[in-house]
Amino acid sequence: MRWPNGARLAVSVVVNFEEGAEQQVGDGDPQSERMGEVMSVVAPGTRDMGQEQIFAYGLRAGLWRMLDALDRHALPATFLMCGRAVARAPALAAEVARRGHEAAAHGWLWRPHADYASAAEEAHDLDRCIETIAAATGARPRGFFCRGSESAWTRGLLAERGFGWVSNAFDDDLPYRDPDHPALLVLPYALDSNDMKFFHPNGFVRAAEMVEYVGDALDVLLAEAEAGRPRLLNIGYHLRICGRPGRFPAFDRVLARLAALGDRVWVARRGEIAEAWAAATR
């Protein structure tokens, strides 16, 4: 199988648009998100204004730096959008779509869907996420990925709502059909080639470390692709993480490498990757 431009390696650049959808006591949530630049030391149940500001940086400053880099390198991305984040900044979500990027659903809040106590509760939040993204961007999201894990009901709810792909899977280098919901294509994601590792003690410290890591992944998968095996590489970013100046080169330099590879790779939105795979494997 070859991707639409003739390459055997597809690359998906993912940017998470979730700032404002993390749990914060200041937003009426029972607790504030603990993981940021540092682990929060504010007592549970107490408003953590510092953590709010760490997240807010993503939409206030990081988004523009990253959108401009995507323009400069002429590459498309998929933005995983949380509903509450879009509701708070619909003009920014609209700008993402205006610049040609795909908007996918990332849940109403930045939380695991495995935490939902019932299918009805999850469906309610999923519907308002879909509606909010569609109203802001002009397009109903066709793909989904949530923090952590799906619930036992998630994929059934997505299939009922006409979704085409899901990405809560870390088990392959290629897409595959969900056997219980054949209309859904599983488009595996990756957490190793992901800038969340800047927030992990065993992860990246300097931008060059992520650039080198992604470069190694590209080298391995390019060699496999050129030996005739189709492959998919996922690279994940966050506005509040690689939108910061000291980590931004981990975004910009990776985009430059992808652009320089030309038709040896196919850099595409996740929806396009899902559609190409589905068409080739009917």
Rank of each mutant, 00 (worst) to 15 (best):
P44L: 14
A159I: 05
P201K: 04
D127M: 04
W108E: 06
P175C: 12
A250R: 01
A103K: 02
R264P: 09
G148N: 06
E224Y: 01
R128G: 00
G262P: 08
F79E: 01
M196G: 03
I130V: 15
D171H: 02
R155E: 08
E33K: 13
A105S: 12
V267H: 13
G228D: 10
Q51C: 04
E37Y: 06
D172V: 08
H181G: 08
R128Q: 01
E33T: 11
G262K: 00
P76F: 07
V13T: 13
A278S: 08
G164Q: 08
P249C: 00
E272F: 11
L255R: 12
E18D: 14
N16W: 00
F251V: 03
M81K: 07
D172R: 14
G36E: 06
G162F: 04
W110E: 05
D29Y: 02
P141F: 09
L191T: 12
A208T: 13
P179A: 12
G246K: 15
E209A: 13
G203W: 04
L222D: 09
P112I: 00
E122T: 05
R47W: 08
A43R: 14
P90V: 01
G162W: 12
H106R: 07
A260S: 15
A279W: 01
V38S: 15
W266L: 08
D48G: 02
A94T: 02
V267K: 08
Q31S: 11
A43L: 05
A278T: 08
D48Q: 04
A225C: 15
V41E: 10
G83N: 12
R99I: 00
V11W: 06
M81Y: 14
A152D: 06
A268L: 10
E37S: 11
V265P: 06
A93D: 06
F17C: 00
A135M: 09
H238Y: 11
F199Q: 06
I133S: 11
R60L: 10
L75D: 12
G83D: 08
S167D: 12
N16Q: 05
P90H: 11
E275W: 09
H124L: 11
A74N: 11
E150P: 07
E18Q: 07
D48P: 10
S118D: 03
C242N: 15
R155N: 15
A152W: 03
A280E: 07
P249T: 05
L184W: 05
R155F: 02
A10F: 10
G271N: 03
I133Y: 08
V13D: 04
D172E: 02
C242R: 07
R2I: 03
G36Y: 01
C129Q: 04
F17D: 12
A105V: 05
R269F: 04
D71L: 09
W165V: 03
A139K: 13
G138K: 12
E37A: 13
G26K: 02
A43Q: 01
T281F: 03
A183V: 13
R155L: 02
A105Y: 00
A152S: 14
V205M: 00
Y237P: 08
R147A: 13
A250C: 11
V265L: 10
A225L: 13
P76K: 10
G203C: 05
N194Q: 07
A152T: 13
G156N: 02
D219K: 14
G28L: 01
D178K: 08
E22T: 01
P230L: 09
V214N: 10
G243S: 15
W3G: 07
N234P: 01
Y237A: 02
L109A: 09
